[in-house]
Design a protein around this nucleic acid. Structure first.
Length: 259
DNA sequence: AGCGATGTTCGCCG
DNA sequence: TCGGCGAACATCGC
């Protein structure tokens, strides 16, 4: 689930369902997801409202005057807004209970998600050493973050201190669309390719947001539907290959994305 | 039954 | 300091 487009979708979902309602309780089902003291979390939320939310990379910040709730979804996180008559959604870890009888469940199946409280978004970004948000960054932000860097492209895209928000699946799609080999190094790509790279990051994420993070209905012209065994490149019909870099597996076309 | 998984972090080493 | 690599975390679904 949660790379940038999914988290953006969660943001829109939270905005649509949960803003401005008084929070009457916070139920802690599994405190292992908390990276904040339980009492601090409760004190920061109860009798307040989700005023607005913003997203940076894969993190969602929700303002509750005067602090921010920070949600990170790990690999298997989700949000579900539901009526109290319905059973608590499976794998719920924390439930935000509103006065109107509805609840927002923070779900994390594999316990990789985390919840924080922070006073300032900028402090949190600094603490986590996050780079510019991949969707909002300007071309100048992008070239600034590229400066004097030489990392392998795949690692750079996955490194949240470099650019925040891109994960394994979308990084493969971005590299495929830009016809870049995942093992190419940052300092090996020329200026026009950099521009193309930048605009493809934006386009791939924009499309992902439009799709609400649902990867199951992607057009065949994208790499995403072909990220599995025995698939062929939608451009040149070559067999798509699986690769491994720094312990992460990905897929690419060995012809279109020649080194 | 074993393996893989859309993430992050840390330690090791060049 | 940068950056590649591998392990660890936890747990479910295929």
């Amino acid at each position: 689930m949660p790379e940038l487009p999914e988290v953006e979708t969660f943001k829109l979902y939270l905005d649509k369902t949960s803003l401005k309602q008084e929070i009457k309780d916070v139920k802690l089902i599994d405190i292992r997801v908390l990276d904040v003291d339980s009492s601090v979390l409760k004190k920061s939320l109860i009798n307040k409202r989700f005023e607005y939310s913003t997203r940076h990379g894969k993190y969602l910040f929700v303002f509750l005057n005067p602090k921010f709730l920070v949600l990170h979804f790990g690999m298997t996180g989700d949000l579900e807004y539901y009526n109290e008559q319905i059973d608590v959604p499976k794998f719920s870890k924390v439930i935000f209970c509103f006065k109107n009888g509805f609840n927002l469940a923070y779900i994390s199946r594999r316990m990789f998600g985390r919840i924080y409280i922070t006073d300032k978004i900028e402090d949190f970004i600094k603490l986590k050493k996050l780079g510019p948000d991949a969707y909002k960054m300007s071309f100048e932000d992008f070239t600034e973050t590229l400066k004097r860097r030489s990392a392998i492209l795949k690692n750079a895209l996955l490194n949240q201190s470099f650019i925040a928000g891109i994960g394994n699946i979308y990084s493969d799609e971005i590299l495929f669309r830009t016809k870049l080999n995942p093992r190419t190094k940052l300092d090996e790509i020329n200026e026009s390719k950099i521009k193309e790279f930048f605009s493809n990051i934006k386009e791939v994420l924009k499309f992902g947001i439009k799709k609400e993070g649902d990867l199951s209905t992607y057009p065949k012209s994208f790499l995403i539907p072909h990220r599995k065994k025995d698939e062929r490149c939608p451009i040149c019909d070559t067999e798509i290959e699986r690769y491994e870099i720094s312990g992460r597996h990905g897929f690419f076309c060995p012809i279109c994305q020649k080194e």
